[in-house]
Design a binder for these strands. Structure first.
Length: 387
DNA sequence: TACGATT
């Protein structure tokens, strides 16, 4: 029912860690009691797009290496994604690779976070605090400094005004590693004035976000629908920041307020890198159809297959996720490689669920310069290209 | 230079 309850149930499905372990070369750590130690293979992924499915989630992380198990965490009642999930790889090296290549990946309006999952434990439940009345001048670092005396901070965030983009709302979140640390912080800081502050702050446990009112659910549905139209336009300004090195920016604790966060992220998209907008032109759907050449284009299986040409020999799947993910639901990416050299043969394919998002991705990415190459992007045709 | 499928 509540978000935290779902976390608990999810984490209980993860194999618990044994008291001691033996590291096998290139394999799982087996403890003396037979349990596996997932600490080097099990990842938590935060800030996933609301509409990402379990299948897309698995496809994205499966492109890195063999997955032992993965789970997109959903609300028990509504089935809606809670915006995070777990991936447990077979090989610790793949877990490391996933962090290095997928952390900071921009998918639609979100920047995903990929990190090692903490071991499952009841003591890490309900450790998220809501803080209000903060001085507007207080930064995230300031806030962390204030709270860090009570324990290890996992995430922190100060909410900012959407319009003025950057002005603190005096409200923030602090997630501690342990619930008892959060309790101590409440005792120590609730009703207290930070040094130099005029007003006392309020510190309490954060609400569980899935305890939504009917109205809130309707609002969320509306947001989801609206994003299908406005989202890709916002993405235009973001796509130039997609190219490696992948973003390792601040880590907004946006899991607690998905609706607000969508708005916040959308506004970020609009304001970012306005000078890097150059070559998008609003090609219409009709002209896109002719761009595809013939009527061989169509939803093949589940989605629209896109042909991407002029990839470098070093291109890999993560590049395609980087490029196309911001435009909408991507279900599959594939880099075609030479069987013997394992180098990319210069092209690949991307499958996207929705036509309008696929069309927008093509319109935006065809002609896009990736390194020293200019990509050619179109709907896949069923026959070999002729002249 | 151009449309896979080594799961």
């Amino acid at each position: 029912m509540s978000r935290m309850v779902t976390i608990i149930s999810t984490m209980e499905t993860q194999v618990s860690n044994g008291p001691s372990g033996t590291s096998l070369p290139n394999g799982p750590v087996i403890s003396t009691n037979g349990a596996t130690d997932d600490s080097k293979t099990n990842l938590i992924v935060n800030y996933l797009p609301q509409n990402m499915t379990q299948e897309e989630f698995k496809s994205l992380f499966g492109s890195i290496g063999e997955i032992e198990s993965c789970k997109l965490v959903r609300d028990k009642i509504t089935g809606q994604s809670l915006g995070y999930g777990f991936v447990n790889y077979v090989d610790p090296n793949d877990a490391d690779k996933a962090i290095n290549t997928l952390n900071g990946l921009k998918l639609q309006t979100k920047t995903i976070k990929v990190s090692y999952a903490r071991p499952s434990s009841a003591s890490i439940r309900d450790a998220n605090l809501y803080v209000s009345g903060l001085p507007k001048t207080m930064t995230q670092k300031d806030m962390e400094q204030l709270f860090s005396q009570y324990g290890r901070i996992i995430t922190s965030r100060i909410l900012v005004d959407q319009v003025t983009a950057g002005i603190s709302r005096g409200v923030g979140f602090i997630r501690f590693d342990k619930r008892n640390e959060a309790e101590e912080a409440i005792k120590g800081l609730n009703g207290q004035k930070p040094l130099g502050a005029a007003e006392p702050i309020t510190v309490k446990f954060a609400n569980n976000p899935s305890q939504k009112t009917g109205q809130a659910l309707l609002t969320q549905l509306y947001q989801t629908a609206a994003r299908r139209y406005t989202g890709p336009l916002h993405h235009q300004t973001q796509r130039f920041s997609l190219i490696p090195p992948f973003g390792k920016g601040p880590d907004p604790n946006n899991s607690t307020k998905p609706i607000l966060d969508n708005l916040l992220n959308a506004s970020y998209g609009v304001k970012s890198s306005p000078s890097l907008l150059p070559r998008f032109s609003p090609i219409t759907i009709d002209s896109m159809t002719s761009l595809a050449g013939v009527n061989l284009t169509g939803p093949t299986g589940a989605g629209w297959c896109i042909f991407v040409y002029n990839l470098s020999p070093e291109a890999d799947e993560s590049v395609l996720w980087q490029l196309f993910g911001p435009f909408g639901a991507v279900t599959n990416v594939k880099v075609i490689r030479d069987f013997t050299t394992n180098k990319c043969k210069g092209f690949g394919f991307v499958t996207m669920t929705n036509y309008d998002e696929a069309a927008m991705a093509i319109a935006s990415l065809n002609g896009y310069r990736l390194g020293d190459r200019v990509l050619q992007v179109s709907f896949k045709t069923s026959k070999q290209h002729k002249a």
